[in-house]
Amino acid sequence: MIISTNRRGFLRTLILGGLALQLPFIFHCKSNDLQVITLTIRDKIFLINTEFLLNIMQILLPKTQQAPGANDLKSDIYYLWLLNDTHIEESRRAYLAEIVVQMEAYFVDKYKEDFSNLTLSEQNDAVSSLTKTKWGEGYLSSIMSIIIESMFANPIYNCNTDKAGWKWLNYQGGFPEPQMSNKYPEILTITQSRSIHEK
């Protein structure tokens, strides 16, 4: 597995190689700038602004003295992996892509500015106001659920770095931990390589 300590480098590795997760990646860079990723699900094209996604996630789960933030947990990378996982129902992936796109458009329309150009205080206010709407609360809640997955997933899923998501809660995952051979999605095809006599 190729691991890069640099987020953009990691994304580049995933996109070019798709090696780490052995899934057919169906997105490509719009340009050398990895900020916007093009995704096709159910014949619909989604333009996912990864910087916006991470900004929102950092508001939902900021790094504090007591807890790691979404950036530390690589929650955005996990989210993108999920969007590209063709084993997951298209409807769910399309929904998770759509909410990112719609929220970004909402903020641009409301503030006449890219979300990333707002100050941190303005970003916090923006998210807070979104939670007052039913649709906004729903979208943010859905993203939060994925952040939570990235907090507790085994680090073999390239998130929850150094088990930071576990340590701050004194949580210990179960043993045996997943390995490269039996984690998801490899476990889906684990029997394929066995001969008929190897049962």
Binding site: F152, N154, G174, F175, E177, P178, N182, T191
Partner: peptide, 9 residues
């Protein structure tokens, strides 16, 4: 041996 205590999978 194929199984792990892996909440994700």
């Amino acid at each position: 041996a194929d199984y792990a205590k892996d909440e994700i999978s």
